[in-house]
Amino acid sequence: MHKYILKRLLALIPVMLGVSLIIFTMMYFTPGDPAAMMLGESAPPEQREALREELGLNDPFWIQYGNWLRGIVLEGDIGTSYTTRRDVADEIMDRFPATLQLAVSGVVVAVVLGVPIGIISATRQYSIFDNVSMFVALLGVSMPNFWMAMLLILLFAVNLQWLPSSGLNHGFRSLILPAITLGTGAAAIIARMTRSSMLEVIRQDYIRTARAKGQVESKVTNVHALKNALIPIITVIGLQFGGLLGGAVLTETVFSIPGVGRLMVESIGQRNFPVVQGGVLFIAITFSLVNLLVDILYAFVDPRIKSQYK
């Protein structure tokens, strides 16, 4: 198992190289001049040119990429923000706690709603509960997040005034609406996956065996069946969580939460290349780590997979 984890971590290196090369190339060819953004359109051309020279923006592509890579490998330095002149790593880490809180609370809402709904739907296939909840889930998947967010704000913040409408300064209470916004969409996806996975499993012979032993129906479903149905469920939960850790731009914007998503969008607008590059790299790493975590979880759920991890 340890060896497996180590192997997977090493495999991250080429992935990260690939990701960084792609994002670097995209940024290189993005129209717009960072120097002009920083100094303003009215700044004299000489001044702009000097800044471009200083930032290394006049170097050929491979020199720029090489310099950036060398900084990371030799000095652990991802770069310096053009706008704030601060370390990119610090910029990201300032924003990450907000994103992490959002992601965790969103996923908790999604799992708490999605998994039970999926299980009940599967055990009562074609019942009214099943039909209604799968219809609502379809709505949940297709409803835009920002619209959901605005409805929630209108109802709970503006009209009822129960909950704050923006920021994260009210502790747990300020997380409730954003978490519901993010969680409902993910819950819909998780519920649908749980349902189909459970439907597959409850047809299996070993479920009949469990019933033939005289086991009660709740244990048959929640122990015998669920544990076998878990792999695809964990997979979608992992994907949702990994996605949320990369920042939820629309939700962060509507609720004015300073997260990684907004940082990225602002930086792209400002042609703040180092922050964008560092941010993408960071997002790719968190996503890969969540994936690795999911794969490790597989081993705890399914002994057959565990015996394959070497």
């Binding site: 012979d205 009660v216 002994p303």
Partner: peptide, 28 residues
């Protein structure tokens, strides 16, 4: 009733299932 028949299943009446490859729960 369901609760009464459960007391009989696996206890007074038990069954050896046909296909042993699929009759056992793979994750227990």
């Amino acid at each position: 009733k369901a609760a009464d028949i459960r007391k009989i299943r696996g206890n007074k009446i038990s069954m050896i299932f046909q296909d042993p490859m699929t009759a056992l729960n793979p994750v227990m």
